[in-house]
């Protein structure tokens, strides 16, 4: 198909753009690093070359900039893939991790774990568990809402999301202001500042475990958008696939929240950009979403750490970009 060839080309283009963005992201920062130094240091890890850079440059690159760049990519991929997948299995173009309350649930879970002095592992598990609980509650409520399902899903998401936000506020109220409260607040604002190599090792596994099935099940998601009855008569076990996709999307969302906090809007805005670029077929959409998500979050993070002398939390920037886009979506309607 010529259409599908055109899309393959676009996706390859996005891949190239991502590589360029990654390289540019290594240069950008308070401490200037040249391309030559970036390439030299990367190569020296695989192949012994004579050191022509200072130790300080290497420390900044490896311990500060590298984890940030990698995490921005991973979180961008995860949130966009989860958003695109939620939209498919809920047959709803307005579904996204934050709108479904998945992020609010994950934040509550993380806050609860911090309150109990949980390890990083406990924080992710707790974030995942509460994230899953919220998504299922929101979905169950939206099924009961009479009339337009899109509206029902958004309203249920808002209600349950704010319920969990209130619970999170309560945790902040009782948290120890000397150590727990700042930790929780950091999570809620959404930021990649202070990312460490350890964070990557820690987040990579749950993200990969969630992302790989989402990419593999991409054709099935197309069929699920037709509704349960039609999907079943076409030989698709709609309930099983939906459950698998929800669990995987929620796992990637929870892993993202655990390392980066609440970064809103990415899961809604990016899949829609991807839909405009390559259409609704998940065979192309999933890859386009993942790549655009990584590119987008890298640029937002670059702005976050370079625009002002103090860091701007990512969540604030994505909201400034996401909210106008959401308004545009509402006005334009869902005619994809």
């Amino acid at each position: 198909m010529e259409q599908s060839r055109k899309n393959t080309l676009k996706i390859t283009g996005l891949g190239v753009l991502l590589l360029v963005t990654i390289i540019v992201s290594f240069w950008l920062g308070r401490y200037p690093i040249t391309t030559k130094e970036v390439l030299g240091i990367s190569l020296s890890k695989i192949y012994p070359i004579e050191q022509f850079w200072t130790d300080r440059v290497e420390t900044v690159l490896v311990n500060i900039r590298l984890p940030r760049v990698v995490l921005a990519c991973l979180v961008g991929c995860s949130l966009s893939a989860a958003g695109a997948a939620y939209q498919g299995v809920f047959q709803n173009p307005m579904a996204a991790p934050d709108i479904l309350g998945a992020s609010a649930g994950a934040a509550f879970g993380a806050a609860l774990a911090i309150l109990n002095y949980g390890s990083s592992f406990t924080i992710t598990v707790s974030a995942f568990f509460f994230s899953l609980v919220t998504v299922f509650i929101v979905y169950a409520i939206s099924r009961k809402v009479k009339g337009k399902s899109i509206l029902g899903l958004i309203l249920a998401g808002i209600v349950i999301g704010s319920l969990f936000s209130a619970a999170t506020s309560f945790i902040k109220l009782v948290a120890d202001p000397s150590d727990q409260l700042p930790a929780i607040t950091y999570w809620l604002m959404g930021s990649l500042a202070g990312s460490k190599i350890g964070d990557i090792k820690f987040a990579f596994l749950p993200m990969a475990v969630g992302l790989v099935p989402l990419l593999l099940l991409r054709w099935r998601m197309n069929v699920l958008t037709m509704g349960d009855d039609e999907a079943k008569t076409m030989g698709i076990n709609a309930n099983q696939i939906r459950l698998a996709v929800i669990i995987c999307s929620t796992l990637t969302t929870a892993a993202s929240v655990a390392v980066s906090g609440m970064i809103g809007w990415v899961g809604l805005v990016i899949p829609h950009l991807a839909r405009r670029l390559v259409g609704n077929n998940y065979n192309h959409l999933m890859f386009a979403s993942v790549l655009i998500g990584a590119i987008f979050l890298l640029w937002v993070d670059n702005i976050a750490r370079n625009l002002l002398t103090t860091e701007i939390p990512l969540g604030i920037l994505t909201a400034f970009i996401g909210a106008p886009f959401f308004i545009y979506l509402i006005i334009r309607g869902e005619n994809y």
């Binding site: 047959q91 958008t225 839909r275 259409g279 609704n280 077929n281 869902e334």
Partner: peptide, 8 residues
């Protein structure tokens, strides 16, 4: 349908 697909 929730999303528009090509006829193909």
């Amino acid at each position: 349908p929730s999303f528009n697909y090509s006829v193909f």
